[in-house]
């Protein structure tokens, strides 16, 4: 086993472990912190696959913006362990069995997929900023511009939803 192989397996194991802790940890804030750890480990996987642009974007967008938003809302609402709603034991067992069955079905279906050997030479520099930028601003320039409309509508929607109802009525 080469060093990079061991690194990939350790990273994968840590990712699964911290993702489990997100679901299992009873305290919501701890759960958010474990999700941030999971995103960092997934970023490690991206670096391992030479997707450097996505690794940086993952850190900036997910751990930098989205998770801070989650943490902010969680602390803003002042949810603690005491008023955390709990689901029954029956529900937990049923959910674990359902999720496990889904996992087994997908893995069993994909396990024996025969990956055809690739004839063309694989370019392992695709994840770099220059190559992705060329692709983003030529082939995918229309979806890129449309996503700005999505963002502005999301922003207007969020502001409108979070506004006090009294002010809307006045």
């Amino acid at each position: 086993m080469s060093g990079i192989e061991i690194l990939a397996i350790v990273l994968g194991g840590l990712t699964v472990g911290s993702a489990l802790m997100v679901v299992a940890s009873p305290h919501p804030v701890r759960s958010v912190l474990f999700l941030i750890l999971t995103f960092f480990l997934i970023t490690g996987n991206y670096v391992l696959m030479n997707a450097q642009f996505l690794a940086i974007v993952n850190i900036i967008v997910y751990t930098g913006a989205v998770m801070v938003l989650f943490l902010f809302v969680l602390m803003f609402l002042n949810l603690s362990k005491d008023n955390e709603p709990r689901s029954s034991m029956k529900m937990k067992v049923a959910a674990t069995v359902a999720g496990g069955a889904l996992m087994i079905v997908i893995i069993a279906a994909l396990k024996d997929v025969i990956m055809l050997p690739i004839d063309l030479p694989v370019d392992n520099q695709q994840g770099l900023v220059e190559n992705l930028g060329m692709l983003l601003f030529t082939k995918y320039v229309l979806p890129f511009e449309v996503s700005s409309i999505l963002f502005i509508s999301a922003m207007v929607g969020a502001v409108l939803l979070a506004k006090r109802e009294k002010q809307i009525i006045d």
């Binding site: 993702a19 919501p28 889904l102």
Partner: peptide
């Protein structure tokens, strides 16, 4: 990871989680 996410959606009752 996807299965863990599915389990989390079903098990947890805190909407943020």
């Amino acid at each position: 990871l996807f299965a863990i996410g599915v389990i989390g959606v079903i098990v947890r009752r805190n909407a943020i989680i």
